Amino acid sequence: MATIPATQPFLAGEKVTASKLTAATKTPIDFLMNPPRCSVAYKSSDIASDMIATSTATLIPFGTEGWDTDSMHSTAVNPSRVVFNTPGLYEISIFARFKVNATGYRQMNLRLNSAGDPGLGSTLTTFAQAAGPTTSTSISRTFDLLITNAGDYVELFVTQSSGASLGLDSGERVTGIMARWVGTNNTA
């Protein structure tokens, strides 16, 4: 868990020392320049036969990381989870690209603390759109999420209704989750 630096005010007439100046400026700036954040991506070998069954919510595991500054993801243990070790406000981006098929809809559902089950935990956002007629269908959503408890996590489920199994495209910024700490959990 990253430590969010406390602000260090100066009092009128107080002598400026190197340690006080560092605490008041350098430490918070260093934290803000490299906040808790991660980027995880699906790779085609993450799901057996790389297929999402029709009309079935499927949990997406993430086999690769672009970056992870706060141990938010593991490719070995619960690879579907992005865990928030540092409470605060996060900017979340989720995205999925389904292979070409013009039938039905494509959907993403991001859930909080769902233990790998699309019926557990809490839905944070659900987004669906019609399939593209001649190209792969990309869907995405970006939003802010307030995390108040260290250890809370999100998981991404996808659903498609083409009438047959359908693959996902893989790779960084193709199918995955990005999360970046943007502020404290003060709501005032």
Rank of each mutant, 00 (worst) to 15 (best):
T134D: 09
T175A: 00
A115P: 08
K26E: 11
L59Y: 08
I4F: 12
D152P: 10
E65R: 12
D144W: 12
G176M: 03
F31P: 06
D169H: 09
I60Y: 04
T56G: 07
S80G: 08
F31K: 06
A41N: 12
A24E: 02
Y153T: 09
L156S: 05
G88P: 03
D144M: 09
E14V: 09
I147H: 02
P36D: 00
Y42I: 02
L32R: 07
G171H: 02
S74P: 10
F127S: 08
R97L: 11
N186P: 00
G151F: 10
T126C: 05
P5S: 01
S140N: 10
P61Y: 00
V77Q: 14
S45C: 09
I92N: 00
A2F: 12
V40Y: 03
N101F: 02
M51R: 14
L145K: 04
R37W: 01
Y105K: 11
T64V: 15
S55E: 08
G151H: 13
N186D: 15
L21P: 06
K26L: 15
I147Q: 04
N109G: 06
T58M: 10
F10M: 11
A76Y: 11
I177A: 03
S161Y: 03
Q129C: 11
T142S: 11
V154S: 02
V100C: 01
V77P: 12
N78D: 15
M72D: 08
G88S: 04
I60A: 02
T134V: 14
P9H: 07
S80M: 05
S162N: 04
Y105S: 08
V154T: 10
V100L: 12
F143T: 06
L110S: 00
L11E: 14
G116N: 07
T148I: 14
N149D: 10
T134M: 11
A41E: 09
N78W: 02
T142C: 03
K26D: 10
D50N: 15
D117R: 07
S45M: 11
S140T: 11
T69C: 09
I60W: 01
P79N: 03
A179V: 10
A57F: 14
I147A: 00
E91A: 08
A18D: 14
Q8R: 10
R173M: 11
I47A: 02
G63I: 07
R81C: 05
D169S: 10
A18Q: 14
V40C: 07
G88N: 03
G116V: 05
A12Y: 13
G63L: 02
